[in-house]
Amino acid sequence: KYRTSIRNFSGKIVEFTREIALAARPVDMEVIFEKKPRGNIALYDEVQPHGPSAPIKKVWLENPKVEPRIEKAYYDGDLKAKDALIELYRKGVLISRIQKAFSVGAFGVEERRKFVPTRWSITAVDSTIGNEIKKKVKEYPFINEYRIYETQSLDNRWLVLMYPSAWQYELIEAWYPNTTWNPSKRQIVIFGDHEFYKGRSTYATIGGCYYAARLATAEALNRERRQAGVVVLREIHPGYIMPVGVWNVREHVRDALRKEPRKFETFQQALAYISGAMDISLKRWIETSELIKDRLHQRRIEDFVEP
């Protein structure tokens, strides 16, 4: 543990921290603490669990090799942080590396740089890049069928529903009893957030997972050069004993969207499949989903056009 101001970039420990974050590969290091580490495991939905901590007395660090594309952005004191994030993503730098560098104030106009808490930096990068990709997606034609993508991992079940529509997106999570964010012994806790074509004006109450899954869905549509409405459903079963971070959401939605989807001719057929594929009843999903309810009950121009 080492405390510093968000705008203080002086001192050996701060310098070492930035070098580690900018490195192209894991760095060997040794740390001497002032006293024995203490504390409990701290759990967050956005980042990996944190264990006991203690004030740092001394640090030894090998000479790290910096990721050259990140290094170039780091030394450009006139490049805005947003532009740096987007440029690095386009050049193929891993999201996780961009997020680490962003958290140590590596990007942006020189005099405005600052440290960013890890959980905020992860969401900021996912949100910024996702918004940029969304702009492209909104220019593409609609998909022409109803699709369902699926994957399972870590006792999480993921299902992604896509349908012909202008861009709209929703993430719904269902936490079973005796999971991290639902200590209840009986009831399943289910909640979600959504956006229509114009996007959101407030931060999603579901947290960083919302922006991580949105990035993954926007990436998939951009690859295909298509536009769609997207609903991501996630069931978190009791075997998921500890949250491992937002990367879990982003990477598993990516995994689902790399697989061949099931295709349906109608929305009702897709919903019927969801009814059999997920443990939670279709009725419960529909009650929670603003986008599914909108799709079921809102009349559209095509409803008045003869086939």
Rank of each mutant, 00 (worst) to 15 (best):
W285K: 14
A24F: 05
M29D: 00
E15R: 11
Y273A: 08
L85I: 02
N156M: 01
V231W: 01
K80D: 06
D255F: 08
A81N: 13
E287N: 11
N248Q: 11
S184R: 13
R186S: 10
L159G: 13
C209T: 00
F196N: 04
R258L: 15
A228K: 06
A216P: 00
S201R: 09
I148K: 02
R225S: 03
I6H: 09
E19L: 15
S53Y: 02
F191L: 10
V47F: 04
H237W: 02
I41C: 14
L221Y: 09
G245H: 03
I241F: 09
R18D: 04
A81Q: 13
S127D: 05
E251M: 07
T17M: 10
D28N: 11
M29A: 13
L233K: 06
T118K: 06
K36I: 10
I236P: 07
I143W: 08
A21S: 12
G51C: 06
V14I: 15
K80W: 08
V14E: 09
H237P: 05
E219L: 03
N131E: 11
H50V: 15
E145A: 08
V104P: 05
S281R: 15
A21D: 04
I301C: 10
L43G: 10
A204D: 01
K263E: 04
V244G: 12
R200M: 00
L154T: 06
K198L: 11
S127I: 06
D78E: 09
S5F: 08
A256M: 12
Y210G: 01
L221N: 12
R223C: 12
Q152C: 04
T288V: 13
P238I: 05
G199H: 11
W247I: 06
N222C: 10
R97A: 14
L282T: 14
R295T: 05
F107V: 04
N131T: 13
Y203N: 10
A220L: 02
